[in-house]
Design a protein around this nucleic acid. Structure first.
Lengths: 196, 196
DNA sequence: CGCAATCCCGGACAGGGTGTCCATTATCAT
DNA sequence: ATGATAATGGACACCCTGTCCGGGATTGCG
């Protein structure tokens, strides 16, 4: 059974993650200090460093959580009409569907001001996820693969930002269709154009 | 005529810009302190703050220079075979040709380790440049335009990185052709597919 | 109950970076 | 020569980082 004493530590970690999210939404990532975070989380300074080595460690750890949550969501709610499992871009589709559904969650990380590090961080994480889930049978050369990943991530972030800032009225399903269209239209000439 | 006294100030600024580039290539941007920069440039602390408000100010200013240099290069050496002036993506093409020719210069900013801030900074600058030079007559809706910009910037950075890290033997002209192919193939379905 | 393990806390510390101010010196224009 | 503009070193107050330690609180277990 999970020992109570572990749960205490877990709760502290969760409090810190939550504090980071809250503050990022308000001030952005760059402007944040460890001081701010532990104040928000109401946690001692020493305690923070007992769990994480620094600010970026906390951030990475947070992304790790999001990532696991994402993969789980993808395999758990398997076959959406469009984001089928066997489509080569299925995972990316599912990823965006997830983002569209939990938009607030994503807005925290993408929309927050001063997100220089944050946005690049997100980009890297997303890219890694997309790359890992891309079927290895796309093309021979390595360049197209890298580019496909970049393309998807770009479409992902651009579409979300566009939604948040320009067309907040749209429904998740509409934005989702937009994303799908962009990816398919733009990517078809670059990959084998399988099914479509 | 330009007063000698102004030139002195200009030389100081140039020294600082140069120092920043040199150090970025060696240590990346994040790890840099103002101290390092003024040491490298052999300039007093107070002098630095007399010209710039801080590290990022210096960086921005450096990008500003690059940007002017770029626009000048584009209009001065007008009609390359491929990057014609009247093609809707002409400026982007010229931009990449420039990057391919002065690869070392770009490698400094893109390749340097720890380039989190840097890379996002570059992304923003490039995006702004591309956006401004895109003909306003691409599509009606605003979304495709944002996306086209993102697409181009993504292709730009991805291709350069791929070149630097994976295929350093290729000639600038070959990489250039690759970039052009990617952009045209990927973008044709999204814009009016003009000429091609 | 009592002991040990585990976690959390506050405070203190050295080290380094930042941005500002000022008095002083060097360089240039006329 | 003289006033204007630049550059300088140094000092200062402030904030942030990581680390360390002693003590207090909670939990697991005999």
């Amino acid at each position: 059974m999970p020992r109570e004493i572990d749960r205490r530590a877990a709760r502290t970690r969760r409090a810190l993650h939550q504090a980071l999210l809250t503050l990022m939404l308000r001030k952005g990532y760059e402007a944040l200090s460890v001081q701010d975070i532990i104040d928000e989380a109401d946690v001692g300074r020493s305690t923070f460093y007992a769990h994480f080595t620094g600010k970026e460690d906390l951030l990475r750890s947070g992304f790790q959580l999001l990532r696991e949550e994402l993969k789980e969501a993808h395999s758990a709610v398997p076959a959406t009409a469009a984001a089928s499992h066997d489509h080569p871009l299925g995972f990316s589709m599912a990823m965006f569907e997830h983002a569209a559904r939990y938009a607030d969650h994503y807005r925290t990380m993408i929309g927050g001001r001063g997100g220089a590090v944050t946005e690049n961080e997100i980009r890297l994480i997303l890219a890694e996820m997309v790359r890992q889930e891309l079927p290895p049978t796309l093309e021979g050369d390595t360049m197209p693969r890298d580019f496909v990943v970049q393309f998807i991530v770009g479409a992902f972030l651009t579409t979300l930002n566009w939604w948040f800032e320009r067309k907040p009225g749209l429904l998740p399903s509409e934005v989702d269709a937009m994303f799908r269209g962009l990816v398919l239209d733009g990517l078809s000439p670059l990959i084998g154009d399988q099914r479509r």
